[in-house]
């Protein structure tokens, strides 16, 4: 069973990292989102530094969710999903492993790159570190919530926008506590520890519950 999980993780990782896999496109999309906001806000460095954590978090949220629309689509189109339903792993475990692979290939690089992008917004060292840390803690929740949406929209041909419409409202609590934790060093009202722990709780709860919801959706929605 663990050999099957390892094989699935390796397969997802290989697909994501090869040409057209989409892992690097998420990082580029993240960079573009972060760099267009100063054009809209204006070159006020003090303002950009203050709202920097929020910009990074909104950009990471969109980059994570928009990258998730292909989580199950490819497997549905080429018939793999029909086979995975009857694999030696339960479908819930398959969802969890796919999400873990997607998170390490697509969301973790965003957290690692966020200090670099935050420099462009004039953020200090301490806010940059807290933003990266809060992204590491919070993006698992975004990936898992997005996986439910991806499972629900798997049979639709252009499910990307519907996926975002379904899952963005559910991601609002994660966004609130993520930005609160990230901006604790740059004048947020809430202390870092409480927001950060809430963020961890969201991620752990989503990891525990979302695989069941996504697997149920995959079983029901397809015909």
């Amino acid at each position: 069973m663990s050999a099957a999980a390892a094989a699935l993780f390796l397969r997802e990782w290989r697909i994501a990292s090869r040409l057209g896999g989409g892992a690097s496109i998420g990082a580029v999309f993240f960079l573009i989102l972060v760099s267009i906001i100063p054009f809209a806000v204006g070159p006020d460095l003090a303002l950009l530094a203050r709202i920097g954590p929020a910009i990074l978090w909104v950009a990471a949220l969109l980059a994570t969710l928009l990258g998730l629309d292909r989580l199950f689509d490819g497997d549905s189109e080429d018939g793999s999903l029909d086979l995975l339903v009857n694999a030696s792993l339960p479908l819930e475990a398959i969802v969890l492993v796919k999400c873990a692979a997607h998170w390490t290939a697509s969301a973790l690089p965003l957290a690692i790159l966020s200090p670099l992008y935050g420099l462009m917004l004039g953020m200090g060292a301490w806010p940059l570190a807290l933003t990266a840390l809060s992204l590491v803690a919070g993006t698992p929740a975004l990936t898992m919530i997005g996986a439910i949406g991806a499972a629900l929209t798997v049979s639709l041909r252009r499910g990307g926008l519907l996926l975002a419409a379904l899952t963005l409202p559910l991601a609002i609590p994660v966004l609130i506590f993520g930005v609160a934790a990230a901006s604790a060093a740059s004048g947020s009202a809430a202390p870092f520890a409480s927001s950060f722990l809430m963020l961890c709780a969201f991620s752990l709860g989503a990891i525990a519950l979302a695989p069941f919801a996504a697997a149920a959706a995959l079983r029901r929605v397809r015909d």
Partner: peptide, 24 residues
């Protein structure tokens, strides 16, 4: 009708994956 194969992976990688997930 669909072959259940990933175009980005080699034939051997596809088969090794199915051997691990469908067997056992």
């Amino acid at each position: 009708h669909a072959d259940g194969l990933k175009g980005a992976l080699t034939a051997h990688e596809n088969l090794a994956f199915w051997a691990a997930t469908l067997g056992g």
